[in-house]
Structure formats: C-alpha cells, structure tokens
Design a protein around this nucleic acid. Structure first.
Lengths: 203, 203
DNA sequence: TCTAGACCATACGCAAGCGTATGGCAACCT
DNA sequence: AGGTTGCCATACGCTTGCGTATGGTCTAGA
C-alpha cells in the first residue's frame, strides 16, 4: 500500500506527529501504538528513538515552546510602534487556527505537570510582551498590567469561543468589524489603519 | 474503617462524584472502577445504577447544565437594571472557583460529542443573556452582539488565566482594582457602586 | 566481503479499565 | 415463613496500551 521508499523517522518527526494528535483529539489520546500505526511503523521504532512515552511528550512540548515563543513574538517585536505591534499580534492570533487549537488542547491537559510548566512559561512571556507594549505607549505600570491581562484574556477567550461555539461569532464580514471593535477597546489611540498589513497611517 | 451505616447510593450521587473528578483531574480520568473505590463500593453498584460509562457521563452533564443555567442566570435575571445585572454576573463569575474549574475541564474535553453539545448550549444561553443585557441598555443590535461576545471572551480568558497562570494576576487588592477596570471596559456607564453587593447608587 | 550500527518488526508479560454473570444479603411485603 | 426487590460484592473474559527482549534488514565503511 505505501510504495514509497521508507526514509527513516527522526525523533522530531515523532514529536511533530504527537503535536498533530494533540491538536486533533486532545492530549491524552497521544498513545505510542496508535501513533506508530499512523506513521506506518510499529512500537519497535518508537522505543528506539525514545525511552518512554513521557520522553515523547517532553520533546513535543519543547518543540512547541520553541515555535510558539521564538517565531511569533520575535516577528512581532520587529514592529517599532507599540500600537502596530499590538495590532499585528491580534491579527496573527486570529490567523493560525491550528496553533490555537493546539494551545487550547495543551491548556486542557494542564493537570499534567510538564505541560503546566511549559504553558505557564509561554503565558508569562506573552503577557509580559503585552505589558511592555502598553508601557511603551506611556501607560503607567498598573494600567499596563491591567491592559495586558485584559488583552490576553480576550485572546484566550476568543480562541475558546471560536473553537467551542463558532456559530455565535456571526460571519466573515461581521468578524472583521468585531476585530476593529476589539482594537478600539484594547488599543488606546486605535485607528483602523493599524489593522492593515502594511501598517501605513498616511496621516 | 467506615463505620457509618451505609446508606444506599443514588444515580445522582454517582453523577455528582463524576463532576467532582472532572473538576479535579479532567474529564478522561473519570473511570468506573476508581470512582467506585472513591465511593467505597465496587463496580457491581455502578452497573446497577447505569448501563455503562457513557450513561454516567450523560447524567453528569445533565446535572451540570441544570445547575449552571437555571441557578446562575435565573438569579441574575432578578436584577432589573441591566447594568446591575452585568455587574452581578461578573461578581459571581469571579466567585465560584470550583464551577470555573469544572467549566474549563469540560471545554477541555470538547472533542467528546455529548460534552460538545452541552457546552455549546450553555455558551449560547450565556452569550444570549449578555446580548439582551446590552440591548436593554439601548445599544444597537450589532453593538450588543460585539459587547456580549467580548464580555464572554473576557470571562473565559480570565477563568483560564486564573487557573493556568495565577501568578500573573497580582494579588487581592490589585485584583479588585482590576475588576473595576473590567467593569469600566465592559459596561458602558459603569460606576464603582455597581460592583457593590447591595447595588446602592445613592446618587 | 565482513562488520558495526541505525532502524524497525515481532512477540511477550503486565496493568488498568470495561462490561457481564452470578451470587449474597437486608428490607419489606404477604 | 417464604418470596420479591433493591443494592452491592466477587469473579471472569476481553481490550488497549506500556515497556522489554530479541531478532531481522539495510547501509556505510574498512
């Protein structure tokens, strides 16, 4: 059936597949044997690459944390204007559906201790990043905290709403309106031009 | 060890215990045999009350939905002023820690279809309730929708933040300040008196 | 060609959980 | 007293997944 010339699997490929499963059907459905079947091999392969199931989870979490912090925040940090940084974050958060599902799936298994560690670290980084954005806009320390926490709460809640009850968020057009509404609420001095990809203000 | 005169268990008691487990350690840790051990009986008891594990889940979900919608929303609906209704909702949402954990644990297992049904229904009810509050304040239909979705997103996100990274939400005093901040952001025409339990405005 | 190592299959023992079958026991009715 | 019914214990077979042990194959290098 699979006539391709089997190139050997790497540990990263296993971790990647594990993240795939987590995003699809939750963390605790990550099992060695089904995963092996999915990859077209058997357990024998798995236990050559990993000591046990926990090691796979660890590798998957490390891969996730790397992608999540390094890529997302690093790209947003290029933007000079803090308002544009925020707008860009909101835009990208709306984008990658798969990343959102994966994030929620991980927090959904927060009773697992390794997951708890990593999720908390990622959250801290992101809230701190938001706080710095608001602080750079001249807000006081207390206000920056409040705004950062509120903004991240909105992010988390929107993720969950879109996953669990997508029909309450009307349609494409209204959603774009809603994004502007969020911008007005969360970014002091918001203008609609901030949400444009190029970020041109032509004032 | 348990010297009490064993009064027989009811199906509701099993469902209640199942919800307890879900709130503690997640949905998929609900297993018949451990649950029986926890209640001091064996499987024999369980399979007298329920046909199978799925029936237990169903009963637990029904019990949860009843409590969640009937009790919470019905009490809030007594408040006449829509602004006070909203403030009361926010206050109570902050309160019951256990209910929040349970809610998140259920949404964390949303890939389970029965759970998906019930969670979606509860979400719809709540968002609709919020929307009516905003509409009663004179907002347009579109604005009421946007506000309702935003408010519910903040609710969900705050729940998750408090569970997964409680240290980012500073302390008791600052949190009360933060609650007022949320009130100002989410309730047009907010005054601090709205958050008082008695709701007195003494204007 | 011989060998070592990378990669994987197969087969086994073990534990946990589901569901069933059946028996026990107390309360209550008649 | 005998029978019925509600509630539970015990014992069994089955499945799934974990981890181990061991052997096979393919390739690169000496």
């Amino acid at each position: 059936m699979q006539g391709n010339t089997r190139q050997p699997l790497t540990a990263d490929a296993w971790a990647e597949a594990a993240l795939e499963i987590i995003a699809e059907s939750g963390f605790d459905t990550v099992a060695v044997e089904p995963l092996a079947r999915r990859l077209g091999v058997t357990k024998g392969s798995f236990y050559w690459h990993f000591a046990n199931r926990q090691a796979l989870v660890q590798a998957a979490l490390e891969q996730w944390e790397r992608r999540e912090t390094d890529e997302v925040l690093a790209r947003a940090a290029q933007e000079r204007d803090p308002r544009k940084r925020l707008a860009r974050l909101f835009r990208e958060a709306d984008g990658s559906r798969r990343a959102g599902r994966l994030y929620l799936a991980l927090t959904g298994a927060i009773e697992n201790h390794p997951i708890q560690i990593v999720v908390r670290r990622v959250m801290d980084h992101r809230v701190e990043f938001l706080r710095e954005c608001y602080a750079a806009m001249g807000l006081s320390a207390g206000e920056a905290w409040q705004r950062a926490i509120l903004a991240y709460s909105v992010f988390l809640g929107t993720l969950q709403l879109r996953r669990d009850a997508p029909e309450v968020i009307p349609a494409e057009d209204e959603f774009h309106e809603y994004m502007h509404f969020i911008g007005e609420m969360l970014i002091p001095g918001y203008t609609r031009e901030l949400m444009r990809a190029d970020g041109s203000t032509n004032s």
